[in-house]
Amino acid sequence: MTSAVEAHAIQGERVELPVRIRDAAVASAMFAVPADAARAVISYSGLDVAEPLPGRAICSLAFVRYADGDLGPYHEFAVAFLVRPPGSAPPTGALGRLSGMKGVGAFIHWLPVNQEFTLEAGRTIWGFPKELADIPMDLAGRVKRCAVRFGGRTAIEVAVRSGAPMPEGSGAPKVEAYSCMDGVTRRTPWTVTPSEVRMRPGGAKVVLGDHPVAEELRGLGLDRARALSSSTVGHLRMVFEGAEEVRP
């Protein structure tokens, strides 16, 4: 272990790790998608999708409002897939599949944001696939809505209905976030502490536009699929550690 603090110069500011998010709000939906098609979408990373059910992978869409955090205030949209830890053998059998879900990570496939500072920080520090977009969002009503637009053209719109309140204080789960930019795959330890969580089965509507990522999601059937579950988080704290390169 080294005591030296990892820090990066972003737009003339010194950003120290870990990066802390003190207040964010999230709405998200999970979909079961054909595993082979999902595998093809993320093959550039060298990672493999997790298959909790035979032939099915999990794709997650999320939109996030960062109100208070080390990267400033911004809106973000995320397309992620659950992936097996690199180097692990594909599980076999029903029990193997379930126990194999323990170490799964989230591979961040696409991560548009609407502010320059977080754009540069995300790409530089973690290799997150951030790009600049207009991301209008409504998180105050019972139906949470978000759109991602480029020069007025809609790439994707998502609406998520609020579900039933979940018990508070279920700990601070540690997640591994994976990303792949310029041929380098990285793993980022990521801690999330959610409160005011609501969940429900189904509850999401997706409209896809003409962006390349929207085409990929159409190929996975996301515009026709019923979500496995939808969830909203009223108040979320997060910690992002430094990224390390992985060679799957």
């Binding site: 109100a67 208070d68 809106h75 991301i135 209008p136």
Partner: peptide, 11 residues
Amino acid sequence: ALAARRLAAAA
């Protein structure tokens, strides 16, 4: 403060 940050987040 939070109102300002949310509006800034919303561009």
